[in-house]
Amino acid sequence: MDNTTIVARLQKIGPMPDSDMSEMATFLLEEFDHLLQQLTKPLEPAHALVLINLGPPPDTSAYEVEWALVHAAESLPAEELYGILLLANNTEVKRLIETRLKNSYSSLT
């Protein structure tokens, strides 16, 4: 299965809910995680944007699966990732990537 197909299937499942929400009981977490594990890197920028937007709400967790979204999106060069973040929805994945990018740039100075 190619990345385009995988990303389309992830979009069909939908964004990750907060782990404290009752919606998590019906969310297809195992299928979502299984699909994420099948992605090949590097991703296309459009795919990274979709993955960032599939993250749970800001300042929440979804059984740590959001980190798989972070690591997949981070397969892009930092400059490209910055541009994608400008277009991304406000999710925990976006927040984590922003923090990691800021930390990596501040350690260079």
Rank of each mutant, 00 (worst) to 15 (best):
V7R: 00
K12T: 05
I97Q: 06
P17G: 08
F27E: 09
H71D: 13
H71G: 11
D33V: 12
N103L: 14
T60M: 06
P77S: 09
T91P: 09
K41L: 15
V93S: 02
Q38S: 08
S75F: 02
R95C: 01
V70G: 07
K41E: 11
E74D: 01
L96C: 09
T40M: 04
Y82S: 07
V7L: 04
D2I: 03
R9T: 03
R9Y: 07
S107P: 09
A48C: 14
D2Q: 02
S19Y: 13
L10D: 10
G55L: 07
Q11N: 12
E31S: 11
E79S: 13
L39W: 07
L81M: 08
P42K: 02
A88R: 07
G14W: 05
A88G: 05
V50H: 06
D20W: 08
V65I: 04
H71N: 14
Y63T: 13
P57T: 10
K102N: 12
Q37A: 09
A62N: 10
H71A: 10
P77D: 13
T60K: 06
T40W: 05
P57D: 14
D33A: 14
Y63A: 15
M24K: 13
A88T: 05
D20E: 14
M1A: 12
G14V: 02
E79P: 10
T91H: 05
L10R: 01
A88I: 01
H47D: 13
V65H: 04
E64S: 11
A73N: 09
T99S: 15
E44L: 06
L51D: 00
A46G: 10
V50I: 14
H47R: 01
Q11S: 12
L39N: 10
A78K: 15
L76E: 00
S61V: 01
M24N: 07
K12I: 02
P77H: 12
S22C: 00
T109Q: 08
Y63E: 15
E79L: 13
Q37I: 07
R100W: 07
L87S: 05
K94Y: 03
W67G: 08
V93T: 07
H47Q: 13
T109L: 06
R100H: 10
E79M: 10
S107G: 11
L85E: 10
L36N: 04
T91D: 06
L96R: 11
L10P: 08
K41R: 14
V50T: 13
E44I: 00
M1N: 07
T40H: 11
K94F: 03
P45S: 10
T99P: 12
S106F: 08
P77E: 14
D18I: 01
A46K: 09
N53E: 12
G55N: 05
I97H: 06
A62W: 01
S107D: 11
L101A: 11
N90V: 00
Y105V: 15
P77M: 03
A72L: 15
Y82W: 04
Y105L: 15
R100M: 03
A88L: 03
S104Y: 09
R9K: 08
A8Y: 02
N53F: 11
A46I: 09
V65L: 00
L87R: 05
F32H: 08
D18G: 01
V65R: 00
V70H: 04
A72I: 12
